[in-house]
Design a protein around this nucleic acid. Structure first.
Lengths: 368, 368
DNA sequence: CACAACGGTGAATCAGGAG
DNA sequence: TCTCCTGATTCACCGTTGT
């Protein structure tokens, strides 16, 4: 793991380190367009308790008899706007952010996020399998937290490892609700007296899914509210680089020790399933050039409804139409579009086989 | 059921009627402090762009109605502020509101709600058991919607039928995530041509739970975006009074007919049936996310004939094959299929134990 | 009559590259 | 920036038709 500076477009990043200080100031000192992903678990409580500062860095005296809800929302919104702005500047154009919160703050953070120009991809519900019950029976058990996954702007193309997430979910598309247990047991960090080291330590399973789904090996993941370093620990395990920012020295120390004791998984295990989109493009004409199909040969729609004839240039000629395998398939079906690779078949020894088999054969040779 | 005016503190209410017009104007004409509960399903401002087709080329019938179009976030926020203010005025001091939305609008609505002085009790996740998938594989399946339950102000003591909800949930405290199917089948209202009468009809089961949990028999429930009248129909069944407000005549007509055909449950049966829960599905990937198995760890076929290695996305890599626990097991055995849960084991303290034990462990936690 | 096969559909910010 | 083309992509459930 790189611990020194890392060159990124001519600028260097402090990789795999925990930076000390106010996250807004620290982020403002980092180069713009340099980070792949941000994971943020900002303070939830609106009663501030001296942990928040106004934009001018003056401290908010929240423990005050004249405490006022409206003022408090405004201060929290200002704070959210500021750190979201700083975060957005350092994100790469195709970068993304995850923010987690509860009903106390998530609506405000979400609105600030949209106002700042971020583009929401999904909101994701972490459904806790073992939440704390509501002891007084005055409300519903607060059994979930909300995460927002957003890109830097509307045009961003974020990393999304669709097939890997699908694999994590037994082969069906990952949904926007994730059932995972809260952090306790051995994973929960304690101090010498046995008190929990941090009040809101997130489970590694949650970060595992976030990082597998929206980063690749070697990416840079920044966490502006690092706490006890769950983001850093999971990033290290998964072969991602992290940058942590944390104001409290006690948390930094716990996080540093934790990450030092964390081991990276071996490279082979970090390979994940990929989608067909990543496979090299094979033009249909190549099947003809290579003699896998011959000009004049007949293709059969796999649904049995149509046939077409192969021409020397890799186009097809069907009933009153000609063009690519896709165009002819679409025309014959009267459909807006058609994937010719999965639509057409060829005859071999009396059986009809999809032409996609031939493409896979070529791809296998290319990969070899 | 009362259809005439209803005396409430010397003022009268138009009970069990569907009022025509803009909801803000209509609410402003109602007496203040007169309504027990408001359920609101405002436009989501979906901002859809082009057309969307399923993989089979059929077209998705999207929400493109004029009432869901807003020019900007600011226009939407102004709208939200206005109707939330009007709604708050007519609420009784201990009254409450439920608002439902998706990530497109819920953060803005939630922030407006807090700014207007409402006090959030819970946010509640409606987890759809049968959501529409993400057809292009570009995001997570949008499998939930968010509801906010809030009181008129911080000091309100809202109706909360804790025991009734607990009973609805097999005797354990109701959580903030509700698993319910979307509205389809016979419940879905259609016009003469078989088209859906309203693009976003909510399931009665959702309203049932809201009204059982936060109103009493005889209470007044107002819905400012009445649509096809799900709120009114469920209120009538449950012996609550409703007031509906709807701008579109077509929706009012459908709702009126629907409610006319709805019968109130007899008082005894206002208790409800509970749904049996099947054993929850646990994806193998969750064992990896949760650290019960680590990427790179070896699995052993319980018959002793093969081994394979775990990857970060919950797939296995065996001798010349990779895929799910089931696929790799089948490939190595040369079998058409294989139950990976009972085929594979992991080593612990020198002993090989079936991975199914880990799944059972997770299920035990979930059930608790 | 039972069961299988098939078709339809749901609040969706749903592609990416070459020219 | 815009147009055109290739070709990747779906889950649970309900209702109807067919065996």
């Amino acid at each position: 793991m790189t611990n020194s500076k890392h060159t990124n477009g001519g600028v260097s990043l402090p990789l795999n380190q925990i930076l000390s200080g106010d996250c807004i100031e620290v982020m403002d000192a980092l180069p713009e367009n340099s980070v792949d992903l941000i994971f943020a678990d900002p303070p939830y409580n609106l009663q501030l308790k001296g942990e928040l500062h106004r934009p001018d860095n003056s401290k908010v005296d929240a423990v005050d008899d004249h405490w006022d809800q409206f003022d408090s929302f405004k201060v929290y919104d200002d704070f959210s706007r500021d750190w979201l702005r700083a975060a957005r500047r350092i994100l790469k154009p195709n970068g993304a952010i995850w923010v987690i919160g509860s009903y106390h703050n998530i609506f405000r953070v979400g609105a600030c996020l949209q106002d700042a120009g971020y583009w929401i991809m999904n909101d994701v519900i972490w459904r806790k399998s073992n939440p704390m019950p509501n002891f007084r029976g005055m409300r519903l058990t607060n059994a979930h937290e909300t995460m927002i996954w957003a890109t830097k702007d509307e045009k961003s193309k974020p990393t999304f490892n669709y097939e890997a997430l699908k694999a994590l979910n037994d082969g069906v598309q990952m949904r926007s609700d994730w059932v995972l247990p809260i952090c306790n047991g051995h994973e929960r960090l304690k101090d010498a007296e046995g008190n929990k080291a941090h009040p809101t330590q997130k489970p590694e399973s949650l970060l595992h899914r976030v990082l597998v789904g929206s980063t690749n090996v070697g990416d840079v993941v920044l966490d502006p509210f690092f706490g006890t370093g769950t983001t850093g620990a999971v990033a290290k395990k998964l072969g991602r680089n992290f940058i942590g920012i944390e104001r409290e020295e006690a948390y930094r120390e716990v996080a540093a020790r934790r990450i030092k004791d964390t081991r990276k998984f071996d490279n082979e295990s970090l390979q994940v399933s990929t989608s067909k989109r990543a496979a090299p493009r094979v033009p249909f004409g190549q099947l003809v050039e290579r003699g896998m199909l011959n000009p004049g040969e007949k293709l059969y729609a796999l649904n049995g409804r149509h046939t077409a004839k192969v021409r020397a240039d890799g186009t097809l000629i069907g009933n009153d139409c000609k063009g690519s395998i896709h165009q002819v398939g679409a025309a014959l079906e009267g459909a807006p579009s058609c994937n010719g690779w999965t639509y057409w078949g060829f005859r071999k020894e009396g059986k009809t086989m999809p032409i996609d088999l031939l493409r896979e054969q070529i791809r296998a040779e290319m990969g070899a």
